[in-house]
C-alpha cells in the first residue's frame, strides 16, 4: 500500500489529577469536522480527557469514535455524561448530543479556556474553512468572520498538498523553513490551482522545500488578509490543525508582526472544549431554574 502522507496521528489524553467519579457536573463536547473529529469530557469545569480522530464516512459514527477514544480506559460511558454539546460541520448529527452549538461560539469559548482570558483574537484554521473571531475576557464572541467559500488555508488543502509532494504532513512546516531565501508565494491557495501550480514548479526543478515554502507562504498571506477585515488585537491565538504547522504559523506571525500564544494542549480540540464548557454552563443554568 502506498504511504499516506496526509495522515496525522490520532491521539488521546486523560488528566491524571482528576477522579471523575467524584465529579458533580460531567459534560461532553464533540466537534465533528469535515476532516477530523474530537471529543472531550469536562468534570466540574476542568478538562478530564480527550480524543482526536479522523472523521469517518458519516457524522454519527465519527462522534462515537471520537468519544470512544476519549473515554478509553477511563471506565466512563456515554451515560455518565449529563449534557453533551455537538459542534462543527456534523454538529446536528451527534447521536448522544443534548444540543448543537456553532463552531464560532465553541472555538472562542475553547480558546478562552486553553489560552486564558487575555485572548482577544482567535484564528481557527480547520479542515474545511477558516474563521477569524474576536472575543471578550469570558470567551464570548464580539465579532466574527467565517470564510464560507474556499478551502484555501485549510487542513484539507494541506493534506492534498502533502500527498502531492509525498511529504508527511507533520513535516511540512519544518521543511518549509529549510529554504535559504523565501520564494515568492504560489499565486493561488485554491486547492485545485495550487496543486497544478506546485506540480509545474516541481517539474521546473524547484526543490520540494522551496515549493512547500511557497505554498505555506501563500496560505499564510491568504488568512492574514481575512484577519485584517476584523483586525487583530492581542493576545492572538490560532486553533485547529494548521496551528501545528510552524511553516504557516511562523509566516502568519511574520506578516502580522505579532506572535501567537503557544498552545499547551492539542490545538485541534478547541471546538470540543468550548462545546463541553457550554454544556457545563447550561447544566448550571438549568439547575438555577430548578
Amino acid at each position: 500500500m502506498a504511504e499516506e502522507y496526509w495522515r496525522w496521528t490520532e491521539s488521546r489524553w486523560t488528566n491524571p489529577d482528576i477522579d471523575w467519579k467524584k465529579g458533580d457536573i460531567i459534560t461532553g463536547g464533540v466537534d465533528v469536522g469535515s476532516v477530523s473529529s474530537q471529543a472531550v469530557v469536562f468534570v466540574d469545569g476542568e478538562l478530564y480527557c480527550y480524543g482526536n480522530t479522523r472523521t469517518g464516512s458519516n457524522s454519527p459514527d465519527s462522534a462515537h469514535k471520537a468519544m470512544g477514544l476519549a473515554m478509553e480506559d477511563t471506565g466512563m460511558s456515554l451515560t455518565d455524561l449529563q449534557y453533551t454539546v455537538g459542534t462543527g460541520y456534523g454538529r446536528v448529527n451527534v447521536p448522544f448530543g443534548t444540543r448543537a452549538i456553532t463552531e464560532i461560539a465553541c472555538h472562542a469559548r475553547g480558546a478562552n479556556f486553553m489560552y486564558g482570558p487575555t485572548v482577544k483574537t482567535v484564528l481557527d484554521m480547520g479542515g474545511q474553512d477558516c474563521k477569524a473571531i474576536h472575543c471578550d475576557p469570558r470567551g464570548k464572541v464580539t465579532n466574527f468572520l467565517m470564510n464560507d467559500k474556499c478551502a484555501a488555508g485549510t487542513g484539507r488543502g494541506m493534506e492534498v498538498f502533502a500527498d502531492l509532494l509525498q511529504v508527511p504532513i507533520t513535516q511540512i512546516g519544518e521543511l518549509s523553513l529549510q529554504v535559504e531565501k523565501e520564494p515568492p508565494p504560489v499565486s493561488s491557495t485554491c486547492v485545485v490551482f495550487a496543486k497544478s501550480e506546485a506540480s509545474s514548479l516541481l517539474r521546473e526543478g524547484w526543490p520540494k522545500e522551496k515549493v512547500i515554502a511557497a505554498y505555506c507562504s501563500a496560505m499564510a498571506h491568504r488568512v492574514v488578509t481575512l484577519l485584517e477585515r476584523i483586525g487583530v488585537e492581542e493576545d492572538f491565538a490560532i486553533t485547529g490543525g494548521i496551528a501545528k504547522n510552524v511553516g504557516v504559523v511562523g509566516r502568519i506571525e511574520k506578516e502580522l508582526g505579532i506572535t501567537a500564544l503557544k498552545p499547551k494542549i492539542d490545538t485541534q480540540i478547541a471546538g470540543a472544549v468550548g462545546a463541553a464548557l457550554f454544556g457545563d454552563a447550561l447544566v448550571k443554568k438549568e439547575r438555577k431554574k430548578g
Partner: peptide, 10 residues
C-alpha cells in the same frame, strides 16, 4: 456581536 457572513475571493 458583529456577525460577518460571506466570503472573500479574488
Amino acid at each position: 456581536m458583529i456577525a460577518n457572513y460571506g466570503y472573500k475571493d479574488g
